[in-house]
Deep mutational scan, measured.
Amino acid sequence: GATAVSEWTERKTADGKTYYYNNRTLESTWEKPQELK
């Protein structure tokens, strides 16, 4: 079946920190989402 992984995108802030952005829920998080573990 379909997985939720594609909803999350790994992004970088202007100062180079990595965060994760969810295209479906429009939420962002510093922690790696469960779906990516």
Rank of each mutant, 00 (worst) to 15 (best):
G1P: 13
G1I: 14
G1D: 12
G1E: 12
G1L: 13
G1T: 12
G1M: 13
G1N: 13
G1W: 11
A2E: 13
A2R: 03
A2D: 14
A2Q: 13
A2T: 12
A2M: 14
A2W: 11
A2C: 05
A2Y: 11
A2L: 14
A2F: 14
T3I: 13
T3E: 13
T3F: 10
T3N: 14
T3Y: 06
T3K: 04
T3G: 13
T3H: 13
T3S: 12
A4W: 10
A4R: 03
A4Y: 07
A4T: 14
A4D: 14
A4N: 14
A4P: 13
V5S: 13
V5F: 12
V5W: 11
V5D: 14
V5M: 13
V5I: 13
V5Y: 11
V5H: 14
V5G: 15
V5P: 12
S6R: 08
S6T: 10
S6P: 12
S6D: 11
S6V: 09
S6L: 11
S6Q: 11
S6W: 09
S6K: 09
S6H: 10
S6E: 11
S6M: 10
E7A: 06
E7G: 07
E7I: 06
E7H: 08
E7T: 05
E7Y: 07
E7L: 04
E7D: 15
E7P: 06
W8V: 01
W8G: 01
W8R: 00
W8Y: 02
W8N: 00
W8F: 02
W8P: 00
T9V: 15
T9H: 09
T9D: 10
T9F: 07
T9A: 08
T9P: 00
T9Y: 07
T9M: 09
T9E: 15
E10Q: 06
E10M: 07
E10R: 04
E10S: 04
E10W: 03
E10A: 08
E10T: 06
E10I: 10
E10V: 10
E10N: 02
E10P: 07
R11A: 08
R11K: 15
R11W: 09
R11E: 07
R11D: 02
R11S: 06
R11M: 15
R11V: 12
R11C: 12
R11G: 06
R11L: 14
K12H: 11
K12Q: 14
K12F: 10
K12S: 08
K12W: 09
K12L: 12
K12M: 14
K12I: 13
K12N: 06
K12E: 09
K12Y: 12
K12G: 04
T13K: 03
T13I: 02
T13V: 02
T13G: 07
T13P: 01
T13Y: 03
T13S: 09
T13F: 03
T13H: 04
T13E: 04
T13R: 03
T13A: 07
A14Y: 08
A14I: 10
A14V: 11
A14H: 10
A14S: 11
A14Q: 11
A14W: 10
A14T: 11
D15P: 00
D15H: 06
D15W: 07
D15C: 11
D15R: 04
D15V: 03
D15Q: 08
D15K: 05
G16F: 02
G16L: 02
G16R: 01
G16P: 00
G16H: 03
G16K: 02
G16D: 04
G16M: 03
K17M: 09
K17N: 07
K17A: 08
K17R: 15
K17H: 09
K17V: 09
K17G: 06
K17F: 08
K17E: 09
K17Y: 09
K17T: 09
K17L: 11
T18E: 03
T18F: 06
T18Y: 06
T18R: 05
T18P: 06
T18K: 07
T18Q: 04
T18V: 14
Y19Q: 03
Y19V: 03
Y19D: 02
Y19E: 05
Y19F: 10
Y19S: 02
Y19N: 02
Y19K: 02
Y19P: 01
Y19M: 04
Y19A: 01
Y20I: 00
Y20M: 01
Y20Q: 01
Y20K: 01
Y20W: 15
Y20G: 00
Y20D: 01
Y21W: 10
Y21S: 03
Y21M: 04
Y21G: 01
Y21I: 08
Y21T: 05
Y21D: 02
Y21A: 02
Y21E: 06
N22M: 00
N22K: 00
N22Q: 00
N22L: 00
N22D: 01
N22F: 00
N22V: 00
N22W: 00
N22G: 00
N22E: 01
N22S: 03
N23P: 09
N23C: 08
N23Y: 11
N23M: 11
N23Q: 10
N23G: 07
N23K: 09
N23H: 11
R24W: 11
R24I: 15
R24G: 07
R24K: 13
T25N: 03
T25I: 01
T25S: 04
T25W: 01
T25V: 01
T25Q: 01
T25E: 02
T25G: 01
T25K: 01
T25F: 02
T25H: 01
T25M: 00
L26S: 13
L26R: 11
L26I: 02
L26F: 15
L26H: 15
L26E: 15
L26N: 15
E27K: 08
E27N: 04
E27S: 05
E27I: 08
E27V: 09
E27F: 04
E27W: 04
E27Q: 10
E27T: 07
S28H: 10
S28L: 14
S28Y: 12
S28G: 05
S28M: 15
S28E: 13
S28K: 11
S28I: 15
T29L: 07
T29Y: 05
T29V: 13
T29D: 03
T29E: 04
T29F: 06
T29K: 08
T29G: 02
T29H: 05
T29S: 11
T29A: 08
T29N: 04
W30N: 06
W30E: 06
W30Y: 10
W30M: 08
W30P: 05
W30G: 04
W30R: 04
W30L: 07
W30V: 06
E31N: 09
E31I: 14
E31Q: 09
E31L: 10
E31H: 09
E31R: 07
K32N: 05
K32S: 04
K32V: 10
K32L: 10
K32P: 08
K32R: 11
P33E: 02
P33H: 02
P33Y: 02
P33T: 02
P33M: 02
P33Q: 02
Q34G: 10
Q34F: 12
Q34D: 15
Q34A: 14
Q34C: 09
Q34P: 12
Q34K: 09
Q34R: 08
Q34W: 14
Q34S: 13
Q34T: 12
Q34H: 11
E35M: 07
E35N: 09
E35S: 10
E35V: 09
E35A: 11
E35L: 05
E35K: 05
E35G: 09
L36D: 08
L36F: 12
L36Q: 06
L36T: 05
L36V: 07
L36H: 08
L36E: 06
L36G: 06
L36C: 07
L36I: 08
L36W: 10
L36A: 05
L36S: 06
K37S: 14
K37R: 10
K37D: 14
K37L: 15
K37T: 14
K37H: 11
K37G: 15
K37I: 15
